[in-house]
Design a protein around this nucleic acid. Structure first.
Lengths: 198, 198, 198, 198
DNA sequence: TATGAATGAGGTTTCATTCAT
DNA sequence: TATGAATGAAACCTCATTCAT
């Protein structure tokens, strides 16, 4: 009932062109966001994609839509990254590894950590996207680790997620800043603070 | 008889007005930076100060000059905040208190933590300002604490300072984010990781 | 069947509109340059053309581009003006007529002579344009006339061209100044100075 | 009645200070006009004179007043330059020498020739100044030379004066332009044109 | 009388967004 | 559906000019 009553017959080909364009735009935007920040001129993104500016607006009516789409796309990979626990690790090890994978993600997608705090359009949506996709994963990892007695139980996944993200900020602009060490410090702080080894 | 015995002084009153205006501008800029970010229109700052735009440029020829001035002004207070050690504390306690004072500073100067990472003009100068003023203080505190055996000695003050700053980011925009808890977590990670308390 | 056999052509109509706008801009700029000088506000030119300011910048990214374009367009006509020698004239007559045509050009394009000396952006380009287009023509005319024994051979076309241009300056602003008489005086000075009245 | 009822007694000293300042301003303006053109910022002139901006305005309420004053000052020297005819010269030689002296003046006061055509405030006054001071001198020289049969009688001093001025334009900006040759050409055109080849 | 701080109009340029083709 | 030309608001920065001291 849906596609049937459309004009001459859009033909699968056209539809796939459209999708191809959307992909081009996502890739282009990701790359441009890195190069020029999340406030990069729309024209720049269109040019990078080899498309017209109107096409950007057709696919992503607001900048927010584009921003979210760019990163949603990249979050998918991370959301499933906790699914293969690698068997014989302690829950803390699993948590630890995921956290660093998260940091990898933020750091390699240069500028993403900073972008999360942009006060521009799309900002809220972007944040929500992260929360929706990653918070459940991290929450589970924290709970597992706490249940196993490895780590504190009084740390909220939300705070922890933002903290990790924050610690990644500035890696690019301050080349001397070693975010990884600080992330490890945060992880260390998470471990059951020695109060009673016995 | 009149002008002859004056110093070159071009009327003391005027000079004090000028200084008053400079202060107005610093206050206005601090407030506007918070509201609109470090890239706020100059016109906005002028308006907030109740002065003309030209006056802003007279006092601070480049945006960098203004940005640096705004924060240098506020750093002075913090740089001396470690001078009154409050006697009977452990070095770790002193460190801990200063770190929270630093966080207070960043958080109450709403937006300042974010501003530290702006990739705009004045950015480098701002960063340098922080490094020059605060790094020595923090470095000393860390060393004292490590010497006393309270904390690790393998943490660089530079990383730690940026980390604290980073953890404060987003406090305003994500009201649910509890930066203080994360700072405490980082401080906890700093403590000599309970090799054997006994 | 449809798009396949078209060239890449992005709709011929659009392109012609674009060209029409460019022409509008050239006309508008020529007119405004006369009225307000070569430094006229871009906004003025846009208004005169009935277009937006952005459009000016799209077509002519720098002021120099616009300035040069305005006059290049008008130089074309002059560069070929020496091609129809009108048969039975002496080379000196031909030279004389072209010089006055050049002066006509400068004077009727009110303000152009002055514009040639603007120390603003685009100035060098404008001068070069004149040199490239007109100098060869004038040089040939001078040589022909000198070869025929009508005029001195020791006058450089470059100096002469600038001199003609200079003599046209002020025609508008000093209504009483009769540039033509001075041009004739210069031409008279060019003739083989009374070889031997004996 | 006039100076008598003034305040405490301005004292000759003060008056001479005022005059000294005026001279400072004239010198400074002349120098700045050369360096930055006739539209140079007022502040620049004040700075060059080592005085406040307000003082500039006190002495020369409009820019026109300053411009005129600067050049009037320099015209005085030229106006008398024809007074010492050096005895044994032909009137044409005297004319010729004065013309080159005029050109010297324009060329060495870099930018002055161009300034004569500025469409800015003070322009008309400047032009008038030249006319009033120099036209009588040049007119007399032309008449003397014509009376002696050296040169044409049908050339108006006004046109000739402007022509000389114009030919000096661009000497600075087009280093390759040899204004002197063109002035000589104009002078050559002035000579009784090859009496009659018949 | 001299000063120079303050003002703000006016120029430049950039881009987000619309819309005719 | 895709295009990119056009628009114009908005930011920047520079002085001419005023006026309190």
């Amino acid at each position: 009932m849906s596609t049937a009553d459309m004009p001459p017959a859009p033909s699968g080909r056209q539809r796939s062109d459209v999708r191809r364009n959307e992909q081009k735009l996502l890739d282009a935007a990701a790359s441009v966001f890195v190069r020029m920040g999340i406030d990069a001129p729309v024209r720049e993104i269109a040019a990078e994609a080899g498309l017209g500016m109107g096409t950007v607006y057709r696919h992503f009516p607001t900048r927010a839509d584009l921003v979210v789409a760019v990163f949603r796309h990249q979050l998918d990979a991370l959301a499933v990254a906790a699914d293969n626990p690698a068997a014989a690790d302690t829950p803390y090890e699993v948590l630890r590894r995921w956290v660093h994978r998260f940091a990898d993600f933020l750091v390699t997608k240069h500028g993403l950590a900073e972008a999360l705090h942009s006060d521009q359009a799309g900002f809220e949506a972007l944040h929500n996207e992260f929360v929706e996709r990653l918070l459940p994963v991290l929450d589970q990892l924290l709970k597992d680790s706490a249940s196993a007695g490895c780590t504190r139980a009084d740390v909220r996944a939300y705070d922890f997620m933002l903290a990790i993200g924050n610690l990644c900020i500035g890696v690019e602009t301050f080349p001397d800043y070693q975010a990884r060490r600080m992330i490890d410090l945060l992880l260390a702080g998470l471990t059951r603070t020695a109060p009673a080894p016995s």
